[in-house]
Amino acid sequence: MIQISDLTFSWPGQSNPTLQIKDLQIKTGERLFLHGPSGSGKSTLLSLLAGIQCAQQGNIKILNEDLSALNDAKRDKFRADHIGTIFQNFNLLPYLSPIDNVVLGCNFSKRRQANLKTEGATATSQATRLLDELGLDENTQHRAVNELSIGQQQRVAAARAFIGRPELIIADEPTSALDADNRDIFIRQLFEQAQQYQATILFVSHDASLAPLFDRKVSLADINGASL
Protein backbone atom coordinates (compact mmCIF):
# COMPACT_ATOMS: atom_id res chain seq x y z
CA MET A 1 0.00 0.00 0.00
CA ILE A 2 2.67 2.54 1.06
CA GLN A 3 6.33 2.33 0.15
CA ILE A 4 8.72 5.00 1.34
CA SER A 5 12.32 4.74 0.26
CA ASP A 6 15.33 7.03 0.76
CA LEU A 7 13.07 9.94 1.67
CA THR A 8 14.58 13.29 2.58
CA PHE A 9 12.52 16.37 3.30
CA SER A 10 13.56 19.83 4.55
CA TRP A 11 11.28 22.75 5.15
CA PRO A 12 12.20 25.77 2.99
CA GLY A 13 14.94 27.88 4.65
CA GLN A 14 16.13 25.07 6.90
CA SER A 15 19.53 23.59 6.33
CA ASN A 16 18.88 20.39 8.29
CA PRO A 17 16.34 17.92 7.00
CA THR A 18 13.18 17.36 9.05
CA LEU A 19 12.67 13.84 7.76
CA GLN A 20 15.07 11.20 6.51
CA ILE A 21 13.42 7.81 6.12
CA LYS A 22 15.36 5.06 4.43
CA ASP A 23 12.56 2.54 4.18
CA LEU A 24 8.99 2.18 5.41
CA GLN A 25 6.50 -0.29 3.99
CA ILE A 26 2.83 -0.54 4.97
CA LYS A 27 0.79 -3.44 3.66
CA THR A 28 -2.75 -3.24 2.36
CA GLY A 29 -5.28 -3.65 5.16
CA GLU A 30 -2.62 -3.19 7.83
CA ARG A 31 -3.36 -1.16 10.97
CA LEU A 32 -0.14 0.66 11.69
CA PHE A 33 0.54 2.70 14.79
CA LEU A 34 3.08 5.46 14.10
CA HIS A 35 4.41 6.77 17.35
CA GLY A 36 6.55 9.80 17.94
CA PRO A 37 6.95 12.64 20.39
CA SER A 38 5.92 16.17 19.48
CA GLY A 39 8.28 17.69 16.91
CA SER A 40 9.46 14.34 15.63
CA GLY A 41 8.10 15.06 12.16
CA LYS A 42 4.79 13.19 12.33
CA SER A 43 2.76 16.00 10.76
CA THR A 44 5.44 16.52 8.11
CA LEU A 45 5.29 12.85 7.17
CA LEU A 46 1.49 13.00 6.98
CA SER A 47 1.58 16.05 4.70
CA LEU A 48 4.05 14.19 2.46
CA LEU A 49 1.78 11.12 2.37
CA ALA A 50 -1.22 13.34 1.63
CA GLY A 51 0.70 14.95 -1.21
CA ILE A 52 0.54 18.43 0.24
CA GLN A 53 4.32 18.61 0.42
CA CYS A 54 6.82 17.02 -1.93
CA ALA A 55 10.01 15.27 -0.86
CA GLN A 56 13.28 16.70 -2.12
CA GLN A 57 14.80 13.25 -2.43
CA GLY A 58 13.56 9.68 -2.50
CA ASN A 59 10.02 8.68 -3.24
CA ILE A 60 6.71 7.80 -1.70
CA LYS A 61 4.54 5.29 -3.47
CA ILE A 62 0.92 4.82 -2.47
CA LEU A 63 -1.04 2.15 -4.33
CA ASN A 64 2.00 1.89 -6.62
CA GLU A 65 1.64 5.55 -7.60
CA ASP A 66 4.82 7.58 -7.14
CA LEU A 67 3.61 10.83 -5.57
CA SER A 68 6.74 12.74 -6.56
CA ALA A 69 5.96 11.98 -10.21
CA LEU A 70 2.56 13.63 -9.94
CA ASN A 71 2.00 17.35 -10.34
CA ASP A 72 0.13 19.40 -7.69
CA ALA A 73 -3.30 18.93 -9.24
CA LYS A 74 -2.85 15.19 -9.68
CA ARG A 75 -1.63 14.82 -6.09
CA ASP A 76 -4.73 16.73 -4.92
CA LYS A 77 -6.91 14.40 -6.97
CA PHE A 78 -5.05 11.35 -5.67
CA ARG A 79 -5.62 12.48 -2.09
CA ALA A 80 -9.31 13.14 -2.72
CA ASP A 81 -9.74 9.71 -4.35
CA HIS A 82 -7.67 7.46 -2.12
CA ILE A 83 -7.02 9.03 1.29
CA GLY A 84 -9.41 9.80 4.11
CA THR A 85 -8.09 11.87 7.01
CA ILE A 86 -9.23 12.11 10.62
CA PHE A 87 -7.77 15.07 12.50
CA GLN A 88 -6.94 15.62 16.14
CA ASN A 89 -9.43 18.49 16.31
CA PHE A 90 -11.92 16.81 13.94
CA ASN A 91 -12.02 19.75 11.52
CA LEU A 92 -15.73 19.70 10.90
CA LEU A 93 -17.36 22.63 9.16
CA PRO A 94 -19.57 24.24 11.80
CA TYR A 95 -22.16 25.47 9.31
CA LEU A 96 -22.89 22.00 7.95
CA SER A 97 -24.92 19.27 9.64
CA PRO A 98 -23.12 16.00 10.55
CA ILE A 99 -24.64 14.41 7.42
CA ASP A 100 -23.43 17.28 5.20
CA ASN A 101 -19.98 17.11 6.79
CA VAL A 102 -19.76 13.43 5.94
CA VAL A 103 -21.08 13.93 2.39
CA LEU A 104 -18.41 16.58 1.92
CA GLY A 105 -15.87 13.73 2.04
CA CYS A 106 -16.83 12.56 -1.44
CA ASN A 107 -17.74 15.96 -2.81
CA PHE A 108 -14.42 16.53 -4.53
CA SER A 109 -13.77 12.98 -5.74
CA LYS A 110 -15.41 11.41 -8.76
CA ARG A 111 -13.86 8.09 -7.84
CA ARG A 112 -15.49 8.04 -4.41
CA GLN A 113 -18.81 8.99 -6.01
CA ALA A 114 -18.34 6.17 -8.53
CA ASN A 115 -17.60 3.76 -5.67
CA LEU A 116 -20.87 4.75 -4.04
CA LYS A 117 -22.71 4.20 -7.31
CA THR A 118 -21.22 0.71 -7.62
CA GLU A 119 -22.59 -0.08 -4.19
CA GLY A 120 -25.97 1.29 -5.24
CA ALA A 121 -25.79 4.00 -2.59
CA THR A 122 -26.03 7.76 -2.67
CA ALA A 123 -23.68 10.02 -0.72
CA THR A 124 -26.44 10.82 1.76
CA SER A 125 -27.54 7.20 2.25
CA GLN A 126 -23.92 6.09 2.74
CA ALA A 127 -23.32 8.98 5.18
CA THR A 128 -26.42 7.99 7.14
CA ARG A 129 -25.28 4.35 7.24
CA LEU A 130 -21.76 5.25 8.35
CA LEU A 131 -23.08 7.51 11.12
CA ASP A 132 -25.53 4.79 12.18
CA GLU A 133 -22.73 2.25 12.33
CA LEU A 134 -20.63 4.65 14.37
CA GLY A 135 -23.48 5.06 16.82
CA LEU A 136 -25.01 8.43 15.92
CA ASP A 137 -28.80 8.27 15.91
CA GLU A 138 -30.88 10.01 13.25
CA ASN A 139 -31.74 12.95 15.45
CA THR A 140 -28.07 13.63 16.15
CA GLN A 141 -27.21 13.33 12.46
CA HIS A 142 -29.19 16.48 11.67
CA ARG A 143 -28.23 18.60 14.64
CA ALA A 144 -25.72 21.43 14.47
CA VAL A 145 -22.16 20.10 14.65
CA ASN A 146 -21.23 22.32 17.60
CA GLU A 147 -24.07 20.79 19.64
CA LEU A 148 -22.43 17.36 19.46
CA SER A 149 -20.15 15.96 22.13
CA ILE A 150 -16.42 15.57 21.43
CA GLY A 151 -16.87 11.82 20.91
CA GLN A 152 -19.77 12.35 18.52
CA GLN A 153 -17.79 14.93 16.56
CA GLN A 154 -14.89 12.51 16.28
CA ARG A 155 -17.21 9.84 14.88
CA VAL A 156 -18.54 12.29 12.30
CA ALA A 157 -14.92 12.98 11.30
CA ALA A 158 -14.30 9.23 11.00
CA ALA A 159 -17.42 8.72 8.87
CA ARG A 160 -16.24 11.55 6.61
CA ALA A 161 -12.88 9.79 6.14
CA PHE A 162 -14.54 6.47 5.23
CA ILE A 163 -17.21 7.68 2.81
CA GLY A 164 -16.61 6.53 -0.76
CA ARG A 165 -14.21 3.74 0.35
CA PRO A 166 -10.78 5.36 0.21
CA GLU A 167 -8.00 2.79 0.47
CA LEU A 168 -5.99 4.66 3.10
CA ILE A 169 -7.21 6.25 6.32
CA ILE A 170 -4.78 8.60 8.01
CA ALA A 171 -5.69 9.33 11.61
CA ASP A 172 -3.68 12.17 13.11
CA GLU A 173 -3.93 11.93 16.92
CA PRO A 174 -7.70 11.46 16.71
CA THR A 175 -8.13 10.27 20.27
CA SER A 176 -6.16 12.91 22.13
CA ALA A 177 -9.34 14.73 23.16
CA LEU A 178 -11.13 11.58 24.32
CA ASP A 179 -11.05 9.86 27.69
CA ALA A 180 -9.72 6.31 27.93
CA ASP A 181 -13.13 4.57 27.58
CA ASN A 182 -14.27 6.64 24.64
CA ARG A 183 -10.81 6.31 23.09
CA ASP A 184 -10.99 2.51 23.08
CA ILE A 185 -14.57 2.52 21.79
CA PHE A 186 -13.58 4.90 19.00
CA ILE A 187 -10.56 2.83 17.97
CA ARG A 188 -12.62 -0.36 17.99
CA GLN A 189 -15.25 1.30 15.75
CA LEU A 190 -12.49 2.58 13.50
CA PHE A 191 -11.12 -0.93 13.06
CA GLU A 192 -14.58 -2.34 12.36
CA GLN A 193 -15.13 0.22 9.64
CA ALA A 194 -11.65 -0.34 8.22
CA GLN A 195 -12.31 -4.04 8.02
CA GLN A 196 -15.68 -3.54 6.42
CA TYR A 197 -14.31 -1.11 3.86
CA GLN A 198 -10.96 -2.89 3.46
CA ALA A 199 -9.02 0.21 4.32
CA THR A 200 -5.47 0.51 5.55
CA ILE A 201 -5.06 2.54 8.72
CA LEU A 202 -2.11 4.75 9.53
CA PHE A 203 -2.71 5.92 13.08
CA VAL A 204 -0.39 8.63 14.37
CA SER A 205 -0.12 9.39 18.05
CA HIS A 206 2.31 10.37 20.74
CA ASP A 207 0.41 8.14 23.19
CA ALA A 208 2.38 4.87 23.14
CA SER A 209 -0.20 3.13 25.33
CA LEU A 210 -2.40 2.68 22.26
CA ALA A 211 0.20 0.59 20.45
CA PRO A 212 -1.04 -2.87 21.60
CA LEU A 213 -4.35 -2.29 19.82
CA PHE A 214 -2.62 -2.20 16.41
CA ASP A 215 -1.10 -4.78 14.08
CA ARG A 216 2.27 -3.06 14.09
CA LYS A 217 3.95 -0.18 15.86
CA VAL A 218 6.56 2.04 14.25
CA SER A 219 8.41 4.69 16.17
CA LEU A 220 9.18 7.68 13.99
CA ALA A 221 12.17 8.44 16.16
CA ASP A 222 13.60 5.05 15.17
CA ILE A 223 13.15 5.41 11.44
CA ASN A 224 13.74 9.14 11.03
CA GLY A 225 17.46 9.56 10.34
CA ALA A 226 17.12 13.31 10.74
CA SER A 227 16.30 13.06 14.43
CA LEU A 228 18.92 10.45 15.25
Binding site: A50, I52, D72, A73, D76, K77, R79, A80, D81, T85, F87, N91, L92, L93, L104, G105, N107, F108, S109, R160
Partner: peptide
Protein backbone atom coordinates in the same frame (compact mmCIF):
# COMPACT_ATOMS: atom_id res chain seq x y z
CA UNK B 1 -8.15 29.56 6.80
CA UNK B 2 -9.24 26.70 9.04
CA UNK B 3 -12.34 26.17 6.89
CA UNK B 4 -10.21 26.25 3.73
CA UNK B 5 -7.75 23.74 5.20
CA UNK B 6 -10.65 21.41 6.07
CA UNK B 7 -11.85 21.61 2.51
CA UNK B 8 -8.32 20.89 1.29
CA UNK B 9 -8.15 17.84 3.55
CA UNK B 10 -11.31 16.40 2.03
CA UNK B 11 -9.85 16.78 -1.44
CA UNK B 12 -10.70 20.35 -2.48
CA UNK B 13 -8.06 21.65 -4.85
CA UNK B 14 -6.85 25.24 -4.72
CA UNK B 15 -9.01 25.97 -7.77
CA UNK B 16 -12.03 24.75 -5.80
Amino acid sequence: RRELAILRSVGARPRH
